[in-house]
């Protein structure tokens, strides 16, 4: 069974069709790239999948459930994590608090327990503290736990955002231009990180990216969209030689 499936979804903003007839299926342990020229509708697709926008047409399935009308936070609990194109960290909070917030949904102590510092409070807080540090440790960021996230260097901010998405325990991770603004060295490290995440967390990944070396280098499947429609889909080699894709990118 697929993790995520969409059936002909589309999005219209006040008469303007941003995306139409977009269908996709992602299975376990896959790494899929979503590419296309600027303004092709990639981020809009992410926003539909994660519940930020409700698609105006079609259906989105997570497992067997239709999630068209679910709120973003509900979709997260169903196993879909994401990052953003323009990094959205909780800037004025520490690195570890950024992670702890993502563990919120796994915790259950009440306000009363919090205010009176009950047993459950201490138990759960201790658990997530350990879990958060472990997670940071996996990404060599344990040292930064108490640093304000806005004080991290750019590359680490990207990494923290991915880390935070992983803390929600996703089955499928959506990465929106993870390499944006990175130099070749950082991009190379990012590729290694992504490979590591797949290995370690057994998640499927759908990523939007402009950096072709990254997309071609790690994705097993690539979907190309232009003007809100799928114009090609296939393996990196098939995409490289696809005339429509070349046309879309070179503007022919």
């Amino acid at each position: 069974m697929s993790l995520l499936k969409t059936e002909h979804i589309g999005m219209t903003f006040g008469g303007l069709k941003a995306v139409s007839d977009f269908s996709i299926e992602i299975n376990e342990n896959e790494l899929v790239g979503l590419i296309g020229p600027n303004g092709a509708g990639k981020t809009t697709i992410f926003n539909m999948l994660t519940g930020v926008y409700a698609p105006t047409e079609g259906k989105v399935f997570l497992g067997e459930t239709v999630v068209n009308k679910k709120k973003p936070y509900q979709i997260v609990t169903m196993g879909l994590g994401r990052t953003f194109q323009n990094i959205r960290l909780f800037k004025e909070l520490s690195v570890i608090d950024n992670i702890k917030i993502a563990f919120h949904k796994d915790m259950s102590y009440s306000t009363v327990s919090a205010v009176f510092r009950g047993k459950k409070y201490w138990k759960e807080e201790k658990e997530i503290d350990i879990k958060a540090r472990e997670l940071l440790g996996l990404f060599n960021m344990e040292e930064d736990a108490n640093v304000l996230s806005s004080n991290l260097p750019y590359g680490k901010q990207r990494k923290l955002e991915i880390c935070r998405a992983l803390a929600t325990n996703p089955k499928l991770l959506l990465l929106d231009e993870p390499a944006a603004g990175m130099n070749p060295q950082e991009t190379k490290e990012l590729m290694e990180t992504i490979a590591f995440i797949r290995e370690k967390f057994k998640v499927s990944i759908l990523l939007i990216e402009h950096d072709m070396s990254l997309v071609m280098g790690i994705c097993e499947r690539i979907i190309v969209i232009d003007y809100g429609r799928v114009i090609a889909a296939g393996t990196p080699d098939e995409i490289k030689s696809n005339e429509k894709v070349i046309g879309a990118y070179l503007g022919q």
Partner: peptide, 28 residues
């Protein structure tokens, strides 16, 4: 006590970035 709990963190995350908070599972 309230602020330094999961509820308080959820509240802080909303001030920081509502969309990001929602994207990590906070019912904003």
């Amino acid at each position: 006590a309230f602020i330094r709990s999961r509820h308080g963190r959820a509240i802080l995350s909303i001030k920081e970035d509502e969309i990001a908070a929602e994207s990590v599972g906070i019912p904003t």
